[in-house]
């Protein structure tokens, strides 16, 4: 496993090194009298690329919102790097990066101004250096002084990735990152995710409904169906059980119907 702790992580959680970096402990959430997440239990070790599968409306975005401290669950607990997402939200926030679906950014600001703003909000010290580094990592230098309104969907997505990794988080959450991208864009995104994981040691938590993506990128998968976690295995084990994509798809459909 590739491990490289970010330099600015000063507060060390009081946990073992091999403890899971993302933990869901009986996580339950109700909204308007309806339970949208039922008792989720999940432990994702450091260094994983976790693919969170499910239909639209299964509860994937709600789960990510709780894990990123944007939403408070009604019962149960969630921990990131050992910190509780409710009581230690600020510690969690220092350790995560997040890319929501459908992000557009400030159209009248340049790429640099957009990124600098979020870098400062994250408490990054050497803003210019970090932006340059992040853009370099994404192979996206040279656009710093262009306004966002001139950017395509794919370019915005890269700015989105840049803001998510500027502060070198331990965990990066991506919500349906392939939406609206063309095949080349999807291929580039896949490469970036793999490199973030392998070169920077970041744990990735990715919401998606595309099976093909999961099998090409992820190291483990979970399937959420109507708020319940119905499957959670490593990709190795999943591929051993379902050797080709067609059977994977078939079983996915079957799993959805089971519940």
């Amino acid at each position: 496993m590739h491990m490289k702790l970010p330099s600015h992580a000063v507060v060390e959680p009081n946990i073992k090194k091999d403890a899971p970096v993302i933990e869901l402990d009986g996580l339950t959430h109700s909204y308007g009298g309806e339970t949208v997440l039922h008792d989720l239990n999940l432990a994702i070790p450091r260094g994983e690329i976790f693919g969170f599968l499910g239909h639209n409306g299964a509860g994937k975005t709600t789960t990510i919102s709780i894990l990123t401290t944007l939403l408070r669950q009604t019962a149960g607990a969630a921990r990131i790097a050992g910190f509780d997402t409710v009581s230690e939200a600020d510690e969690v926030r220092r350790r995560i990066g997040y890319l929501p679906e459908n992000i557009t950014f400030y159209n009248d600001l340049t790429a640099y101004e957009n990124l600098a703003y979020f870098a400062r909000l994250s408490g990054v010290k050497n803003v210019d250096e970090r932006i340059d580094e992040a853009l370099g990592f994404l192979d996206f230098r040279g656009i710093e002084h262009r306004k966002l309104k001139t950017f395509s969907k794919g370019m915005r997505q890269r700015i989105g990735l840049a803001q998510a990794i500027l502060h070198e988080p331990e965990v990066v959450f991506l919500d349906e990152p392939t939406t609206g991208l063309d095949p080349v864009g999807i291929k580039n995104l896949r490469d970036v995710i793999l490199r973030l994981n392998q070169e920077k040691g970041m744990t990735i938590f990715m919401n998606t409904h595309l099976l093909s993506e999961v099998s090409k990128t992820c190291t483990s998968i979970g399937v959420l169906n109507r708020g319940r976690l119905i499957y959670n295995e490593s990709l190795e084990k999943t591929l051993a059980d379902f050797p080709d994509e067609v059977s994977l798809e078939a079983i996915y459909v079957q799993m959805e119907e089971l519940v």
């Binding site: 919102s65 944007l70 926030r93 459908n102 950014f105 803001q163």
Partner: peptide, 17 residues
């Protein structure tokens, strides 16, 4: 409205502010 239209509010509040 600017923040809402840009969709950046989640990006602001996942940060330690």
């Amino acid at each position: 409205i600017r923040e809402r239209a840009a969709g950046v509010l989640p990006l602001v509040f996942v940060r330690p502010i």
